[in-house]
Amino acid sequence: MSDDLAPATGTFVALRNLLFTVAYEILGSAADAEDVLQETWLRWAKVDPDQVRDPRAYLIRITTRQALNRLRTLQRRREAYVGPWLPEPLLTAPDAASDLELAESVSMAMMLVLETLSPTERAVFVLREAFELGYDEIAAAIGKTPAAVRQIAHRARRHVDARRPHRTATPSEGEAVVKAFQRAVEASDLEELMQVLAPDVVAVSDGGGLKLNAMHPIVGVDKVIRMFLGSMQKIGGTLSTRPTQVNGNPALLFSFDGRLDGVVALRIEDRQVTGIYYVRNPEKLSRLERETALTLR
């Protein structure tokens, strides 16, 4: 590393986890977020840090622009995706669950809600609600006026509020529900599954065309139980599950005959499971081998 790049490198490294979180929340893909960070670094390395008044705001602005460009490309790719698309799950450190704001912001349930926004709405919502940027800063990042950003933020917040979990479980509540779900699944206990799953539970599975999955979300406790237990029989082998933490929330790793099959993340409200998100696509499981540091600050 040249002496000229040392200050820029130090600043970028210090903010890297924050910038990755920005890109990941906008894109829902860790692999694409890493590419965005690489593009951000290449642009940052050409800038004289001494001429930048606020490096944090400047780097978030570059990251947001690159993420938006990539998101528009990804949306076309996702239209051709085989079956339902789920965000790439990230193994997170235990202390991530204690940051309730972070845990809700990057949860699989919230990430799916963000998928229903337009690219610009998603970027504005993430920057405003998760990272608490001002309207002027967001306007500079997305090329809109502050007045337009304010309107977009209001529209996006109203849209998300209508779809987000009404009551997010505390870490202890979440762990208790996950354990109950784990016991019920391992024992194929229909009665306990009926107790732990909400009547209107929704199950979404993502195989990406590489593994078996339901081609549409399954709604209703009876249908979900039949689908879930039926899928495990089709996969075959001896099921084992292991608690873990994905995107700051409790989850389960599913293995058959000792081989990792996928990860199940749960949306929990009022001590019942209202959403099951089963990521089986092997191309999305690489981030379960090591923890990913996420931060909103």
Rank of each mutant, 00 (worst) to 15 (best):
E39Q: 08
R43T: 06
W44G: 00
V47Q: 14
P49H: 12
Q51S: 13
D54L: 03
P55T: 01
P55N: 02
R56T: 14
R56F: 10
A57W: 00
Y58I: 00
R61E: 13
R65V: 03
Q66G: 00
L68H: 07
R72K: 12
R72F: 04
T73V: 13
R78H: 13
Y81L: 09
G83V: 10
P84R: 04
W85Y: 15
W85N: 08
P87S: 04
P89A: 04
A93V: 06
A93P: 00
A93H: 12
S98R: 15
E101K: 15
A103M: 02
E104S: 10
S105F: 09
S105P: 08
S107C: 06
V113I: 14
T116F: 12
L117V: 11
L117Y: 11
P119C: 08
R122V: 10
A123G: 13
V124P: 06
F125R: 13
F125P: 09
F125L: 15
V126N: 13
V126Q: 12
R128E: 12
R128N: 13
E129Q: 14
E129W: 11
F131C: 09
E132P: 00
E132F: 04
E132G: 01
L133V: 05
G134D: 11
Y135Q: 11
Y135S: 04
I138H: 06
K144R: 10
P146T: 05
A147L: 02
A148W: 01
A148F: 05
Q151E: 14
R157H: 08
H159Y: 06
V160A: 09
A162E: 09
R164I: 14
H166Y: 13
H166Q: 15
R167Y: 05
T168V: 13
T170V: 03
P171R: 02
P171Q: 02
